[in-house]
């Protein structure tokens, strides 16, 4: 039995023992205790599902991966790719609720090599209120290099990145349920650095705002 499984089994057994103990000593507390453990269970499942979703977004970037030279790289907030790119084109999407423009740029700096070098397209999607937001979230950590995490001073956030459902339950639910935002409008990218970055690398840049 590996360590993780052992911890899970131990936690379950302890929880059951606590419930039984509570029931014996304080019968009136039982509904509260049961509710607590049910919520914990839901949080646990939500956390696992969110992590799975995040890692699946990160999967194309693994060493030796087969996904390469894609037509589109879509980074930012919850946008439905079917509404912005032709069906025949290949794409990779890195999305999370409320991801800001500057954070999206940092992720772009880490992931741009997956694009077709001659005809790559970058799409960044952020909401109006997150246009100038440079606050990283637990959903961004999987896409950042460890030296970048250190440079950006988000090591503490990095340690919490295994518990996204605990840190940000509402956004976790939105991510898991794939709740894409609507009413996106294409407009000029307000950040000149991103435009320059893409031009230097021969990428076309599209920016969507909500």
């Amino acid at each position: 039995m590996n360590k993780r499984r052992f911890v899970c089994v131990l936690a379950t057994v302890s929880a059951i023992a606590m419930i039984v103990g509570c029931f014996s000593l304080f019968p009136k507390l039982l509904p509260l205790v049961l509710t607590f453990f049910v919520l914990l269970g839901v949080l646990f499942i939500l956390n696992r599902t969110v992590l799975k979703k995040l890692y699946s977004q990160r999967d194309p970037f693994k060493i030796g991966g087969k996904v390469r030279n894609v037509d589109y790289l879509i980074i930012g907030d919850m946008i439905n790719p079917a509404t912005i790119i032709p069906a025949s084109k290949t794409f990779v999407q890195i999305k999370a609720p409320n991801r800001g423009l500057l954070v999206s740029f940092e992720i772009l700096r880490h992931t741009s090599s997956i694009l077709d070098e001659d005809n790559g397209n970058v799409i960044i999607a952020t909401t109006l209120k997150n246009k100038t937001d440079d606050k990283f979230s637990v959903f961004d950590i999987p896409f950042l290099y460890n030296l970048s995490i250190k440079k950006l001073g988000i090591e503490r956030l990095s340690k919490l990145s295994r518990y996204p459902a605990l840190i940000n339950p509402l956004s976790s639910i939105k991510l898991v349920l794939n709740l894409d935002k609507k009413n996106w409008k294409e407009t000029e990218c307000p950040n000149k650095e991103i435009s320059i970055f893409c031009t230097e690398r021969n990428f076309n840049l599209s920016y969507y705002e909500n």
Binding site: F61, I63, G64, G65, R68, N69, E106, R109, H110, T111, S112, S113, I114, E117, L144, Y145, S148, F197
Partner: peptide, 16 residues
């Protein structure tokens, strides 16, 4: 040649 990259440079060199 299909320009296949075993290593994605930007992942190890942000801003590549």
């Amino acid at each position: 040649n299909i320009n296949y990259k075993y290593y994605l440079e930007s992942c190890l060199c942000p801003g590549f």
